[in-house]
Design a protein around this nucleic acid. Sequence first.
RNA 1: AGGGCGGUAGCUCAAUUGGUAGAGCGGUCGCCUCCAAAGCGACGGGUUGCGGGUUCAAGUCCUGCCCGCCCUGCCA
Length: 365
Amino acid sequence: MRARKRRVAARRGRRRARVRACKDGSLAARRDGAMSERRPRVMSGMRPTGNLHVGHLVGVLTQWAAYCESADAFFEIADLHAYTTGFSDPQAIRDAREEMVAVWLAAGVDPERSTIYLQSGVPEIAELQTLLSMIVPVSWLERVPTYKGQIEALGNEVATYGFLGYPLLQLCDIAAMRGERVPVGRDQVAHLEFGREVVRRFNYLYGDGRDVLTEPQPTLSEFPEVLGIDGRKMSKSYDNAIYIADDEETTTKKVRAMITDPLKIRRGDPGRPQICALFALWKFANPFRVDAVAAACRSGELGCVQDKGDLAEALNAYLRPVRDRLAAYRADRGAVTRVIEEGTARARAVASDVLRDVKRAMRLV
RNA sequence: AGGGCGGUAGCUCAAUUGGUAGAGCGGUCGCCUCCAAAGCGACGGGUUGCGGGUUCAAGUCCUGCCCGCCCUGCCA
């Protein structure tokens, strides 16, 4: 009880500090270059999907957890984005919401030091999209490299208006939170570049010499490649993932099924760790043993069966604390829901501020 | 709204004048391998979108409906 009170008090204090920071962060202050010690606003998001896997954990979530310390972080449950391709199964999107956030929290994303919010719970984002859509040429969207490829991959039935506008909605996510830095993988660079062009066009048309919207900067994050059971990139759609929510027995079974070096036929044969899916997992399951494992594999001294047993053990040990916390959050859905509600309220305050600026610039108010 | 094409296994698609619904991929299980992969073998898998009708017999023909994709000049 006392602990909770303290936490709430601490949160209020931080929030007040944040409000002050926002006020200080006015345009004038920014021009003065007085912002150097302010933490950058980082915005990132994820479509609600029930099963997050080890690739998400090491590639994205650990980074998010770090941003909680180093940045003023906003993390979005991108449920509207999920509808662009998953519109035929709304229940799946709804069901994934709390579960996904439970995994975020279990992975160390700190709701006290970041803002976790629901995209559809911030209607200002959607309104912003409508406003900005007026100045976005269709051809800009059509030439985003992922568009035609995705249509080809997913079929013409997903070629909706909303799907075409996906990159614009992404920009609105960022702009509505005044995101400055956006961690992106290589495939998302084009989307952000598109978004920057939209911002420049908006400021040119309506800014009257000022930057109403801020161009978000990409933060290239080269995630360590995590390979799935079949040796390809770990991905839900390849059905080759080890899930954070898997139990230890399932994890062990999956590790046993993983592809190793096809030229290492029998024990004693030299292996090539660099092409072995096991090795990709060792790097983070236990970084202190990577070199020893790789050397033993190369010499042939280490057999794959032994290797798999060891890795399964190391991986389960690495995941155990995350899984334990996940179990706790699953048992207390109410706490997760509260995190989302509080975060969404905070996000909404930021977004309505932005929307007001945009509407003024467009002479709508 | 109208026109065209389509809906068959988890996915992509076959099925002759109407005559026992199949294949590939995927999946599961064996053999082989330190394991896995590859290779070989086996197995499972279906209300043929839904309802009527014609017929000895309908995935196939007729009819109504549902769903998907494509097309239907300019004036929003």
